[in-house]
Amino acid sequence: MSNYRQLSSAERFTIARLLAAGQSYRQIAAALDRQPSTIAREVRRNSGAQVGYRPDYAQQLTAARRWSGARLERDADLRASVLERLAAGWSPEQIAGRLAYEAGVPVISHETIYRFVYAQLKRTNDRRWRFYLPRAKYKRGWRTKGGWPRPAGRCSIHERPPAIATRNQPGHWEADTMLFSQTGQAILIVHERHTRLTMALRHDSLQAEPVATALIALLAPVPKPLRRSITFDNGTEFNRHYRIASQLGLDTFFCDPHAPWQKGGVENAIGRLRKSLPRKTNLDSLPGDSLNAILARHNNTPRKCLGFRTPAEAFIPLHFKCESTPGSRPG
Rank of each mutant, 00 (worst) to 15 (best):
191 H>L: 01
132 Y>D: 00
130 R>I: 15
288 G>N: 10
302 P>S: 07
134 P>C: 09
193 R>T: 03
221 P>I: 11
260 P>G: 04
126 D>V: 09
108 I>C: 01
121 L>M: 14
177 T>M: 13
214 A>T: 10
275 K>C: 00
239 N>V: 00
201 L>T: 11
49 A>P: 01
243 R>P: 00
278 P>C: 08
236 T>L: 11
299 N>C: 07
176 D>G: 06
265 G>H: 11
230 I>M: 11
89 G>H: 09
203 H>F: 03
28 I>H: 03
254 F>T: 03
88 A>S: 12
161 P>W: 10
296 A>K: 10
72 L>N: 03
231 T>I: 07
49 A>K: 12
329 R>A: 14
133 L>N: 04
213 T>V: 11
240 R>A: 12
275 K>N: 09
319 H>P: 00
272 R>F: 07
263 K>T: 02
130 R>D: 00
97 G>Q: 10
119 A>I: 01
277 L>W: 09
134 P>K: 11
140 R>Q: 14
185 Q>Y: 04
309 R>A: 14
184 G>H: 09
270 I>T: 04
239 N>L: 09
233 D>F: 03
146 G>T: 11
166 T>Y: 01
140 R>W: 04
239 N>Y: 07
130 R>Y: 00
25 Y>M: 03
227 R>S: 05
201 L>F: 04
132 Y>C: 05
37 S>I: 08
69 G>E: 10
271 G>I: 12
51 V>K: 10
189 I>E: 03
188 L>A: 12
